[in-house]
Design a protein around this nucleic acid. Structure first.
Length: 885
DNA sequence: GCTATAGGCGCC
DNA sequence: AAACGGCGCCTATAGC
C-alpha cells in the first residue's frame, strides 16, 4: 500500500498500486516514499518522444506508460486520426515518483527543474540514448521536468528550446482533456502535427524578425519604409494599458475593467515586422494621421483597443478586422486570448512573460502575432469557403452592432428613481418582517478578541455587545484541542479562560448560507441541486418553503426587488441612455451583450412591467419591437426534416400538443396535424382559448409548453419534475407527457439520434449558414456499466443547429435592415429573436411594415423556409400594442 | 483591501 | 448513471 505524502490531489500516491517503499529514485537528494518504475515503450521510429506524468494505476499494473484510459484516448483521437501507430513513438513517464517536497502549486523555475532532474536521471539517459527529433511534454509536470517552466495552458503548442538541443512541444495531458475538457482535443492533435512537421523538415527554424523598439519618429518612419509598409496593407494595432497584464487568461473577459489609460502602442504590417513606441507625443499625433488613412486595420479583441484609442482621439476610418472573431469562427469553443491562439498559426516562442521585463519587445511581438494571425486565419477561412460569410456575419454585422450598442436605449430617469424608491421601501418593510421572523439562535455573530473597541463605544452601542467567557487561545493546539494554559499568557494569566465580546448581526437574506441555516432551523429539508451533490436553495424552493413559512416568501420578494435595483441600475450616458457592447462570444455564434447586458431585461417577473416602463423612446419616437415567432421550434422542425413539425410550430405546437394531452385524459381526439393550415391555426387558437378559461388548476398549457421546450433540448422527466414541480408533480407524470410528445412526433427523437451520430463521427456540426461547432464528447464509455452513455456534448450538439441558425437569421435581418433607408439608424437592441427600434412617430407604419417584411421573408439557406413575425409598438417597453400587417 | 470563485438569477 | 442549451452580472465568501 502506498500512502499519502502530502495532502493534496497532486501528491497522493494511488492506493492500489504496488509500490516499493523507502527506495530512492536515482539521484534524488530528498527522502521520498516510493517509486513505480515503468519502462519506456515504443520503438521511436517516428522520431517523436512522448513524455507523461508519473505512472498511474493502470500504467503500473500493465508496466506500460499511457496504458489504460489515457492510452485509449491517444489511440482514438490522435494516433488513429494521424494514421500512425503507438509503437512508432517513444512513450515514457517524466517521473517515477512524486517527490515529497514538490507541491502541485509550486511554480516552475530552474531550481524545480533541477530538483526534478535529480529525481529522474533515467529520463536524461533515455533522451541521450534515443535522441528523438522532437519531444512532446504531456501536461504540466512533464513540461516542468523538460523545460523548467510552469503553466502548460499558457505554453501548450509552442515550440520550446530545451537543454537537450531538442525542441519540446508541451500539450495538455490526456487525463485533463478527458475530465470534461474535451474541447482541447484539437490542441493536442495540433501538437502532434507540429511535431511530425518538425521531423519531416529535419528541424525547426523561426522566421527572423526585425522590430523597431522605441526609436525616434524619423527612425520609425525609415524602418517602416525599409520594411515595406504601405497604407494599403492591413495594419495590426495593439495598445498596452497599465493593467493589461491583470486581464485573465481568456482575455476577452473583464475587458471593461482594465484601465482606460494607454501606456504603449505598436503596429505591424507583415510577419516579422513591428514598431512599438511609448504613448507620448509626437507618436500619438502621428498615429492619429496614420490610422485615419489606413484602409484596413487589424486588432485582436477590438473591443478592448478601439474605445481606448478613440478616447485619445485616435479614430480608425478603415475596415476593421478582429482576429479574435476570425479565430472564434474557426474554433468557437476554444480560448480566445492571443497567447492561446498564436502557436497554432505562428512559429513564435512564448512571449507573454516579457510583459514586465521587456514591455517594448512584448508589445512588438503582440503586433507581429496579430498580423500573422490575420493572414493565416483568412487563408483558413477561404480554404473552408467561409470567408464571405465571415465578412458579412461578423465584420459587417459588427459595424452595425457597434453603432447600435453605442446608441443603446433611453431610460426614464425619473420613473426609475420612483421605482427604486418604492422598491427600497418594499425591501425595508420585508427586511423588518424577516428580521422579526428569524430566531436569534441562527443570527451570525461577530466576536471581538479584546474589549478595547467596546470601551470606546457610546453606551447605546455598547449595549448591543455581550461578554462571555471562553477558553484562551494560548493553549489551543493545531488539532483543535486545548493543552495546559501558559502562565505567561498576558490575556488569561494562566487561568486558561478569557472574556470575549460578541454581538448578533442582522440576518442577511442575500446570503445563501444564512438562508440555508434558517431553513434547517425550521426543520426543512433542502433539496439537492439537480445533477450535483450539494444543497441548493433556489427561488423555486423558497417558493415551496414559503407555503408553510412566510419568511421564505419575504426573502424571495426582497431578493427580487433588490435584483431589480442593483443589476438593472445601469450607468447612463449624457443622453440618459444605457449603452452596451455587443460581441460574438457564445460558441453558437449567438450575439452577446456586455457592460451593460441589455439582453436580460426582465420580462415575466411581477416587477418586470414596472421596470420595462422605465425604458422609453425619445420624445417624438416610439419603440417598435419585432419578434421572430417561435423561431427555434420552427428551426427544430426544419433540422428534423419534418414539414409537419414546421407547420405545427408555426400554427402553435403547444396548443396542438395540449389538445392531444387533453384528449388522452378526457377522451375525444386531438387536433389533426394534417388540417389545412388556416384551420389548423384556428383549431390551435381555440384550444388555447379553451385552456385559458378553465379554472387555474385545470390549465395544462404551461406544462405542455415546458415539456416541448425542455424535450427539444434533452431535458429528462426527472429534470422536468425537478424544475417545474407545479406543472409536473411527479416524475411519472412528466415521463408520460414526454412520451406522448415524442410518440406524436417521432421525428424529433430520430433527429436527435442522427444529429448525435453525425457530431460524433465528424467531430463537428455545421448549421445552415456555415457556422461550425466542434464536439469531442458526444458519447462516452461507461466502464462501470459497460455501455455508451451521453458525454458532455451529448445535449450541446442538439442545441447547436437551431440556436445558431436562429442567430444567423437575426444577423441576416440585421444586415438587410441596415441597408434600408432610415431603418438602420433606428436599430437599438437585439435580443436573440427580436429587434427593438426607436422610430420617429411619422415613420412608425413604414418601420413596422419593413420589419415584418424582412422577418417573414423566405430563407434560401433553409430551402425557402419562412418564419413568422410579430411586431409591437409603444412609447415604452411595457405598454406595447400589436401592429397588424 | 483586493481578487477569484460559488451560488444564484435575469434573458432567449 | 445522470438528470437543459446559450449567455452576463450581482452578492457573499474565502484566501491572499
Amino acid at each position: 500500500m502506498g500512502r499519502a505524502i502530502v495532502e493534496n490531489d497532486f501528491i497522493i500516491l494511488d492506493q492500489q498500486a504496488p509500490l516499493v517503499e523507502g527506495e530512492f529514485c536515482g539521484g534524488c537528494p530528498q527522502r521520498f516514499v516510493g517509486e513505480r518504475r515503468v519502462e519506456p515503450d515504443g520503438n521511436g521510429t517516428s522520431g517523436i518522444m512522448i513524455v507523461g506524468d508519473s505512472p498511474w494505476k493502470d500504467e503500473v499494473r500493465l508496466g506500460k506508460p499511457f496504458a489504460g484510459a489515457a492510452g485509449a484516448f491517444l489511440d482514438k483521437h490522435i494516433f488513429r486520426r494521424l494514421g500512425v501507430k503507438r509503437q512508432d513513438f517513444t512513450l515514457t513517464n517524466s517521473l517515477w515518483c512524486r517527490p515529497p517536497y514538490l507541491n502541485w502549486t509550486d511554480r516552475g523555475g530552474p531550481e524545480v527543474a533541477e530538483a526534478l532532474m535529480h529525481c529522474t536521471p533515467y529520463l536524461d539517459q533515455l533522451i541521450s540514448r534515443i535522441r528523438p527529433k522532437v519531444i512532446i511534454a504531456m501536461g504540466n509536470v512533464a513540461m516542468r521536468r523538460l523545460v523548467g517552466v510552469d503553466g502548460v495552458m499558457k505554453r501548450q503548442a509552442y515550440v520550446h528550446d530545451s537543454r537537450y538541443g531538442i525542441p519540446v512541444i508541451p500539450t495538455l495531458h490526456p487525463s485533463f482533456i478527458m475530465q470534461d475538457n474535451h474541447k482541447y482535443t484539437p490542441a493536442m492533435y495540433f501538437a502532434f502535427r507540429r511535431a511530425q512537421e518538425i521531423v519531416e523538415k529535419g528541424g525547426f527554424d523561426r522566421l527572423p524578425v526585425t522590430y523597431s523598439l522605441d526609436q525616434t519618429l524619423p527612425d520609425v518612419e525609415k524602418y517602416m519604409i525599409e520594411q515595406g509598409y504601405s497604407v494599403d496593407l492591413p495594419l495590426a494595432v495593439d495598445i498596452e494599458t497599465p493593467e493589461s497584464d491583470k486581464i485573465p487568461e481568456d482575455s476577452d473577459e473583464l475587458e471593461e475593467k482594465a484601465g482606460q489609460t494607454i501606456v504603449r502602442c505598436g503596429l505591424s504590417w507583415r510577419p516579422g515586422t513591428a514598431v512599438t513606441f511609448p504613448w507620448t507625443e509626437p507618436y500619438i499625433s502621428w498615429l492619429q494621421g496614420l490610422l485615419a488613412r489606413q484602409r484596413v486595420v487589424v486588432f485582436h479583441n477590438k473591443s478592448f483597443d478601439l474605445p481606448r484609442l478613440e478616447r485619445y482621439g485616435v479614430m480608425v476610418s478603415g475596415r476593421v478586422y478582429d482576429t479574435m472573431w476570425m479565430w472564434h469562427f474557426l474554433q468557437s469553443d476554444l480560448l480566445k486570448s492571443l497567447e492561446f491562439v498564436a502557436p497554432f498559426y505562428t512559429d513564435l516562442a512564448p512571449w507573454k512573460h516579457l510583459n514586465n521585463g521587456q514591455p517594448d519587445l512584448y508589445n512588438a511581438i503582440d503586433n507581429d502575432a496579430t498580423i500573422r494571425l490575420f493572414y493565416k486565419l483568412k487563408e483558413w477561412l477561404e480554404k473552408q469557403k467561409r470567408w464571405e460569410r465571415f465578412e458579412a456575419h461578423c465584420v459587417e454585422a459588427d459595424r452595425i452592432l457597434t453603432r447600435m450598442g453605442k446608441l443603446g436605449v433611453m431610460v426614464d430617469v425619473q420613473a426609475r428613481d420612483t421605482m427604486q424608491q418604492s422598491l427600497r421601501q418594499d425591501i425595508a418593510r420585508l427586511d423588518g418582517e424577516i428580521q422579526g421572523l428569524v430566531p436569534n439562535s441562527i443570527l451570525p455573530r461577530k466576536v471581538l478578541k479584546t474589549d478595547r473597541t467596546i470601551k470606546g463605544l457610546p453606551p447605546e452601542e455598547r449595549a448591543k455587545w455581550e461578554s462571555y467567557t471562553a477558553r484562551c487561545d494560548c493553549s489551543l493546539q493545531p488539532d483543535g484541542t486545548y493543552s495546559t494554559p501558559s502562565p505567561k499568557c498576558r490575556r488569561c494569566k494562566g487561568s486558561g479562560l478569557t472574556t470575549l465580546w460578541r454581538t448578533s448581526m442582522r440576518f442577511n437574506w442575500n446570503s445563501t448560507e444564512q438562508v440555508k441555516e434558517l431553513a434547517r432551523a425550521k426543520g426543512l429539508k433542502i433539496p439537492l441541486k439537480r445533477g450535483e451533490d450539494r444543497e441548493a436553495l433556489e427561488a423555486k424552493t423558497l417558493k415551496q418553503f414559503g407555503k408553510r413559512h412566510q419568511v421564505f416568501l419575504n426573502i424571495l420578494h426582497a431578493r427580487q426587488s433588490q435584483k431589480l435595483i442593483t443589476t438593472y441600475d445601469w450607468p447612463l450616458n449624457a443622453e440618459m441612455r444605457a449603452t452596451t457592447v455587443y460581441g460574438f462570444h457564445p460558441s453558437t455564434w449567438r450575439k452577446s451583450s456586455r457592460s451593460v447586458n441589455l439582453q436580460n431585461i426582465p420580462k415575466r417577473n411581477d416587477l418586470a412591467e414596472l421596470f420595462r416602463r422605465t425604458l422609453i423612446a425619445a420624445p417624438g419616437h416610439k419603440l417598435v419591437e419585432a419578434d421572430s415567432a417561435a423561431i427555434e421550434a420552427v428551426l427544430v422542425g426544419y433540422a428534423a426534416g419534418s414539414a409537419r413539425l414546421i407547420r405545427l410550430a408555426k400554427a402553435g405546437v403547444h396548443d396542438w400538443f395540449m389538445s392531444h394531452v387533453r384528449a388522452s385524459r378526457d377522451g375525444g381526439r386531438g387536433i389533426d396535424p394534417n388540417l389545412p393550415y388556416p384551420e389548423l391555426v384556428k383549431a390551435c387558437a381555440e384550444a388555447k382559448w379553451y385552456d385559458k378559461h378553465l379554472p387555474a388548476h385545470e390549465q395544462i398549457r404551461e406544462a405542455c409548453k415546458r415539456c416541448i421546450h425542455g424535450t427539444d433540448y434533452g431535458l429528462t422527466p426527472y429534470g422536468m419534475a425537478d424544475e417545474y414541480p407545479d406543472e409536473f408533480p411527479t416524475k411519472k407524470i412528466a415521463a408520460e407527457m414526454q412520451e406522448m410528445y415524442l410518440g406524436l412526433l417521432p421525428e424529433i427523437r430520430e433527429w436527435m439520434r442522427t444529429t448525435r451520430e453525425r457530431a460524433e463521427w465528424q467531430t463537428y456540426l455545421d448549421n445552415h449558414y456555415q457556422y461550425r461547432h466542434y464536439f469531442f464528447s458526444v458519447f462516452k464509455w461507461d466502464s462501470q456499466y459497460n455501455r455508451w452513455v451521453l458525454g458532455n456534448d451529448g445535449k450541446r450538439c442538439i442545441a447547436f443547429v437551431p440556436q445558431s441558425d436562429g442567430s444567423a437569421i437575426q444577423t441576416e435581418d440585421l444586415l438587410t435592415l441596415d441597408t434600408i433607408e432610415g431603418v438602420g439608424d433606428w436599430l437599438r437592441l437585439i435580443i436573440h429573436d427580436s429587434f427593438v427600434l426607436e422610430v420617429p412617430d411619422s415613420e412608425i407604419e413604414y418601420a413596422c411594415q419593413t420589419l415584418y417584411n424582412v422577418q417573414s421573408r423566405p430563407r434560401p439557406e433553409l430551402g425557402g423556409l419562412t418564419i413568422g413575425s410579430e411586431v409591437k409598438v409603444g412609447s415604452n417597453l411595457a405598454d406595447q400594442e400589436v401592429w397588424h400587417p
